[in-house]
Simulated scan of single mutants.
Amino acid sequence: MPLGTTIHNIEITLGRGGQLAIVVGVVAKLIAKERKSATLKLPSREVHLIFKNYSATKILGRVRSKCWLGKRPKVRGVVVNHVDHPHGGGEGRALIGRKRTRNPLRSSCIWKKK
Rank of each mutant, 00 (worst) to 15 (best):
I10V: 15
A32Y: 00
E34C: 04
G17T: 06
R62L: 03
C67Q: 11
G4H: 10
L69K: 15
G77S: 07
H85L: 02
K36G: 02
I59N: 11
A32I: 00
P86Y: 00
R93Q: 03
K71C: 04
G70M: 12
L40T: 02
T13S: 05
A38G: 03
R35Y: 14
A21Q: 04
R72A: 14
H48A: 10
L95Y: 14
T13C: 03
E91K: 08
E11K: 09
A21L: 00
V27H: 04
V63G: 05
K58C: 10
E34Y: 12
A32V: 00
V75T: 12
K36R: 07
N53I: 01
S44P: 06
V78C: 07
A28T: 00
V63D: 13
L95N: 08
C67E: 10
E11M: 10
K52E: 15
T6S: 11
H87V: 00
P73N: 06
V79G: 03
V75L: 14
L3A: 13
A56P: 07
P73T: 05
G89A: 05
N81W: 02
R62V: 15
L3K: 15
D84H: 12
F51P: 07
K29Q: 05
S44F: 00
T57C: 07
I59D: 05
L3T: 08
I12D: 09
V24Y: 10
H82R: 15
V23T: 07
I7W: 04
N53F: 14
R16L: 06
S55E: 07
A21P: 02
S55D: 04
S65T: 13
V47W: 00
S65M: 09
A38E: 02
L3R: 13
L49Y: 01
C67N: 09
G15Y: 08
R93H: 02
L49G: 00
L14C: 02
K52Q: 15
G61H: 12
R62G: 04
R72Q: 08
K52W: 12
G4I: 11
H48L: 14
R35K: 13
R16S: 09
K29I: 06
L49W: 01
R16Y: 10
V75Y: 15
G70V: 07
V26R: 00
L60I: 13
N9R: 12
V24M: 02
G4D: 09
E34K: 10
P43T: 04
I7R: 01
K71H: 09
D84W: 11
A21V: 13
A21H: 00
V27F: 10
G88M: 04
I7E: 03
I31E: 01
V24I: 01
K41L: 15
T5N: 03
V78I: 09
R76I: 01
G90N: 01
I10F: 04
I50V: 12
K52Y: 11
T13E: 06
G61Q: 08
G77H: 07
A94H: 07
W68H: 13
A94F: 11
E46F: 01
L60A: 15
A28G: 11
K52D: 14
R76M: 01
G92W: 02
N81C: 05
Y54W: 11
C67G: 03
V80I: 05
L14P: 09
T39D: 04
V80D: 10
